[in-house]
Amino acid sequence: MRAPFVLTDLPIPADPPFPIPTQAGAVTTFEGRVRDNDHGHHVSRLEYSAYATLAEKEGAKIVAEAILRHGLLAAACVHRVGDLVPGDTAIRVWAVSPHRLEAFQGCAFIVDEIKARVPIWKRETYVDGRAEWVACNHPPR
């Protein structure tokens, strides 16, 4: 199996990067996309940059935590870096479990923890030409 958390500068494949075991009764996929607006600003494009070594380490840790905590059969995440435009897929998360509840919860856990913990940054450029590094609202942890 490929690494459970991968950064890529290419479009993210729709299929999970692992075979789905036959014990699985549920597969959830979360797809996060670039919006054309943020806090009332019209976004024309954005750039993701990452501290790759630590991002892949922390991302893999989060996926492993999700598998343990929610009893998943498998899980993975792929996150884009580089230049994106509205409508592009920025992140995909897959969670696989025997029954649906664990797959939903495990998938949500992975997305939430990635947003809070993985060293990836986003620079939005607005249609009026301004650009800024977006700071999320939660305190560091």
Partner: peptide
């Protein structure tokens, strides 16, 4: 050493 600004992935 790396100082990490607030992250904004996902």
């Amino acid at each position: 050493v790396v100082f990490l600004p607030p992250v904004a992935g996902g």
